[in-house]
Amino acid sequence: MTWPPAGKDSPLPSRFVSLTRTGHELPPQGLTVSPYQDSAATQGRNLPKPQSPRNAMPFTRIDMDTWKRRELFRHFTEVAPCSFSMTANLDITRFRATQKANGLKLYPMLICLIAGAVNTMPEFRTAYRESGELVIHDILHPSYTVFDKESELFSAIWTEFDGNRNAMYEAVLDDMARYGGTRRYCPKPDPPENLFNISAIPWTSFTGFNLNLPRAEKYLLPIFTMGKFFEQGASVQLPLAIQAHHAVCDGFHASRLLEQLQDLLDRGMRDGRYSTSDDLYLGDGEGHTHCLASRK
């Protein structure tokens, strides 16, 4: 996908609603931020152990001497550590109509499309490993929240991203059925390092949403929060907040990701599945894409 998209005069989408920036206090020396540690207390049913991609996690180490973003990275990690949040409305009019007509579930579909958009951009796959290495992961897997109405608690469940949108949709449904309602924060075992977060607040529409992470300036991966969709004239709009670290990306990259996601939303259906192709693609940041192997 070229940037700016054809017919666009500005890289900033018209759906742009709000932008906030959050500074971070420096953490104690040696702090390791890991939001995936499970509680010692275990509730709910016995759960199956999945195949984990933890040991199959290709990445590229960043050479700080040659990395084109090295000065920006050092400024936003050492001089003025900060993240920023951007909230925009996505037009899901066609997407919502097709989803309803085919009996598909909206949230799992959106999880798959967000994962597809994130994996096209290396800026959003840049992270510290648990070892302290700064790398660009080849692939990120989504970790998403599932709400339990009875307990009014949520769980964070992860699903492996393998590039096949249709197969991933079925895998998300399966993981939700297996691990939802356990009243545990991380019920699915063996989460890999290369996860990014998605959550939803389906009860409220919002024009701005920000997560305060005062001691997590080493957490570089994006965080997505969806709001309640609403009608605006003849269209259906979905608010989406992106929380990103300024050390690895700027508003330009967040705007590009929103355009990538809108493009995925606007594509047509084929054979009852939301896709013009069964494949999802990875971008290398230089305008090239690499097709991931399909799983038919």
Rank of each mutant, 00 (worst) to 15 (best):
C249K: 01
I201A: 06
V118A: 12
Q243G: 08
Y36Q: 05
A177N: 10
K188W: 06
P108C: 14
Y219D: 05
A40F: 14
T126I: 12
I223Q: 09
A40H: 06
A88P: 09
F147D: 08
M121N: 08
G268Q: 09
L140H: 07
L113E: 02
A244V: 10
R295D: 11
V135C: 02
Y281N: 05
R165I: 03
S199F: 04
N194Y: 09
K68L: 06
P48G: 06
R165S: 01
T42I: 13
M269L: 08
Q51P: 04
E193T: 01
V33R: 07
H246G: 02
K188C: 02
L90F: 10
R256G: 03
A127W: 05
P108A: 14
S14A: 15
P13F: 00
H290G: 04
T276P: 02
G163H: 08
R183F: 02
H246Q: 12
F229V: 03
I201T: 09
G163A: 05
D9A: 13
L280P: 00
W203Q: 12
Q51R: 11
V17Q: 13
L195I: 02
I111R: 00
G233N: 09
Q262W: 02
C291R: 10
E231G: 02
P202R: 06
T66M: 15
R69V: 05
R129Q: 15
T145D: 10
A234D: 14
L47W: 15
E78V: 13
L173Y: 07
L280H: 01
M57D: 09
A177E: 11
H141C: 05
L240C: 04
S235G: 07
A244P: 10
Q260K: 08
S85W: 08
R129L: 13
Q43A: 06
T159P: 07
C112Y: 00
R61C: 03
P58S: 07
A41R: 11
S277L: 09
R295K: 14
P13Q: 04
P27C: 03
M168V: 03
P122Q: 14
T289P: 00
P122T: 12
T159Q: 06
A171W: 01
A177H: 11
L220D: 02
E193S: 02
P187V: 12
R183Y: 04
F76H: 12
Q99L: 13
H24Q: 09
H141Q: 04
N89Y: 11
P187D: 09
D91T: 04
G180F: 12
A117L: 05
E71T: 05
M1G: 11
I114V: 14
Q37V: 15
Y179R: 01
A293E: 11
A293K: 12
G132H: 15
D175G: 01
D65Y: 13
M226I: 09
L47S: 10
L280I: 02
Q260W: 14
A56M: 13
F147A: 01
C82K: 05
A156N: 06
L257V: 06
R21W: 12
F76S: 04
Y281C: 03
M64I: 11
M269H: 03
A88Y: 01
